[in-house]
Amino acid sequence: MKIFDTVPFFVRLYEPSLAFLHNYQRAFSNTFKSYRKYHCKNTTEQKEFALSEYAIDHIERVHKEIIPIIERTARAYEEQYSLVFPISVQLIVGVYGSNAYAEREVVPNITFALEQLPADEESLSIIVAHELGHVAHHMLTDQKGCDWGGMMWQDPRISAFQEGAAMYFSKQIVSGLPDFKYFSFDAQKDDGYQKALTLLPGIARAFLKDLQQQSSTQMVREWFSIRGGEQFEIPRLGYVIGEQFVATEIERLGGERALTLWTEPNFLQYMNSWLEEVCENEFKNRS
């Protein structure tokens, strides 16, 4: 695993101007390609907002904390799952789009945008474990001989399963914390997790309805974005759906089988059946 770090360049040369941000992103154009395409509008207005919000001291604190956390977390995955990550981890300063993301690859590289990350060690540890959990999930799936070419990447049920698996892995690597922290990525506040569990039958019904009526882009915003969650006033409810599905299937099938269910040709219908069951039955609170 290699860490590709553009943050010292940003901090050392920072000046509050659009020209600076343009030159910074151009200097690392390959690094920012996916960020601009999938994870941030990156408009002039967004850049102007970022220039008004940047706190260089905070960025430097996060930068100091996150590198040893990444290295420690990678070692934990190697010890627990015998996985050595053949990836690059990129550290950037974005313009307040996504705080972290895995690339759209079979074995995905990871990017962390430091201006959006918390500076405390516990929250950072959860976020890092979650993103590396995506890599672990893909690697373990690939070992099973997955037909990646047939994967329905745009389907929200696939996204929910991926996020649920990453939440599961983060609980194994950074263990013993209240469940809400693995959802909110915040050491201080619940952010709606407990409420979501009590509302899960209604949430499952709404998710199934949106699968029929909404585009994948609309569902990504409503169910997976921090800026979504209009229906229940809780963002990222797709994570909760995925987490509860993964927890149910691990209990029923065991970890290895449950985490690779998406390789099966009937997976989407299988998840539909689970969602319909949740709609019909009161779901036990797992907290």
Rank of each mutant, 00 (worst) to 15 (best):
G255M: 14
L208P: 13
S287W: 07
H22E: 14
Y35K: 01
N42L: 06
R157C: 03
F207Y: 12
Y168H: 14
D155M: 03
Q244H: 12
E105H: 00
E79R: 10
N272D: 14
R227N: 14
V89T: 11
P265Y: 00
F180M: 12
Q213I: 13
G97C: 06
E222N: 05
Q25S: 10
A196E: 11
S82G: 12
S125M: 02
A136S: 10
D191H: 15
L253A: 05
R252Y: 06
L197M: 13
R75Y: 11
E121D: 05
L124Q: 04
F245C: 05
A19R: 13
H39E: 13
A113M: 11
W153R: 10
L114K: 02
F85M: 07
Q188L: 11
V220I: 12
T217C: 08
E277W: 14
T31F: 03
H138P: 00
V240A: 13
L18P: 13
Q116M: 15
Q188W: 12
L197F: 13
Q212E: 12
V246D: 03
P86G: 03
E78D: 01
D147V: 15
A76Q: 12
Q213D: 10
L21E: 02
R236V: 04
D120R: 03
Y24P: 11
M1G: 08
R257S: 06
G176P: 04
I126Q: 00
A27Q: 07
G149V: 05
L13I: 08
R104L: 01
D186I: 04
L91R: 06
T217V: 14
A204P: 10
L199H: 13
A113G: 14
V93S: 04
L208G: 09
L117R: 02
K171R: 13
W262Y: 05
L21G: 05
T198E: 15
Q154A: 15
S34Q: 06
E15I: 08
Y96P: 15
A100D: 12
Q162R: 02
M1V: 08
V62P: 01
F224C: 05
A113T: 14
Q218G: 08
P118H: 01
H130C: 02
A187C: 04
H58D: 09
W223E: 03
E280Q: 14
Q188C: 08
M271F: 07
S88T: 15
G255L: 13
E163F: 07
S225K: 07
H138I: 00
I110P: 07
E65N: 06
E78W: 05
S34N: 09
P201W: 00
Q194R: 15
E131A: 02
V128M: 05
E45T: 06
T6D: 03
G176I: 01
N42E: 07
E243P: 08
I226E: 13
A187R: 04
A165I: 05
A187Q: 05
